[in-house]
């Protein structure tokens, strides 16, 4: 006789709803969840979905109408609480945990405990690099150093990513520069020139910022919730684009990075929490201009 798991034993097929497996001893019966219960759970889930979307839209409305910016953590706590309620509903009723063996729920709880440990301790480290000793506080280059990207250009032959050399710029800044140059060239072409002159560059830049803000003009709201003086784009704009906050219209001094004077948003308020040493080199514009953290 071969060792086969297909040597099956066929139970008596006469169906008895109180004993669906016809096994006789030790049987507990499987819970069949009623159709109205399932429907109610679905409606509750849809309600909570609408609620979470509604609260989020409400937050935008409050922000646009009354200029009240709600704190970031409020959004997370509300959205996650609603998600937890929804997940509990799905788990308890659709997945049947409420009527199932307790062991399956315990497995889920142990699993969630592991997830919590994972998030909690990782966040403790990355959120508190400088909280004990100031030695660890570093000023990273926002957007990354871009240095590794220069290496990709000549080294990676098996990588599928584009081989770009960003000239030690963060990639967002690099792409912006690319686009500005492109628009300047276009302006030059329109005027029958081969090399763009200052006039073309200015025209290209104006075109760039027009596109930049188009989406927000169309939607009639402001581009940023977390507005910080040190990268305020509104100084670039005609008056009617201006932010409510007139103080912010004061032009701020800008770094002259890689030839894109006046149009680099790629520095932001000072951040900590990055790997020490990795961001020190090549971050001259960051260390020069990084203002201390000043939320609102």
């Amino acid at each position: 006789m071969s060792h086969s798991i297909d040597d099956v034993h066929i139970p008596n097929p006469d169906f008895d709803p109180t004993d669906p497996h016809a096994t006789g001893q030790g049987h507990h019966g499987h819970h069949i969840i009623s159709a109205p219960t399932l429907m109610i759970v679905l409606l509750l889930l849809l309600f909570f979905t609408a609620l979470t979307v509604g609260l989020s839209r409400g937050e935008v409305w409050v922000q646009d109408t009354f200029d009240i910016i709600l704190p970031n953590w409020l959004n997370i706590i509300i959205a996650m609480s609603i998600s937890v309620i929804k997940a509990t509903l799905v788990g308890a009723y659709f997945m049947g945990l409420r009527f199932d063996k307790a062991l399956n729920s315990i497995i889920m709880l142990v699993c969630l405990a592991a997830v919590v440990c994972f998030l909690f301790f990782t966040a403790i480290d990355l959120g508190n690099r400088d909280s004990v000793s100031a030695v660890r506080a570093t000023v990273p280059t926002p957007g990354g150093t871009g240095e590794g990207l220069d290496k990709t250009a000549d080294r990676f032959s098996t990588a599928l990513s584009p081989r770009i050399s960003t000239n030690r710029m963060p990639i967002t800044e690099f792409r912006r520069t690319e686009r500005l140059n492109e628009l300047a060239l276009k302006q030059a072409e329109d005027h029958g020139r081969i090399e763009p002159n200052d006039e073309d560059k200015a025209a290209g830049e104006a075109e760039f910022w027009r596109i930049y803000y188009q989406g927000y003009v169309d939607k009639g709201k402001h581009p940023h919730r977390h507005e910080h003086d040190e990268h305020n784009y509104f100084t670039k704009l005609p008056d009617h684009f201006a932010h409510h906050d007139d103080d912010a219209l004061e032009p701020v001094s800008r770094p002259d990075v890689a030839g894109v004077a006046d149009s680099s948003p790629n520095f932001s308020f000072r951040r900590t929490g990055k790997t020490p040493g990795l961001f020190s080199e090549g971050s001259e514009h960051a260390s020069d201009h990084a203002a201390p953290a000043s939320d609102h």
């Binding site: 990709t152 686009r179 760039f208 581009p223 520095f267």
Partner: peptide, 15 residues
């Protein structure tokens, strides 16, 4: 990542 080629990013960490 490096595929990012949208020129109108608001924030340097968008990639």
């Amino acid at each position: 990542g490096t595929f990012f080629s949208y020129p109108y990013a608001h924030d340097p960490h968008e990639p």
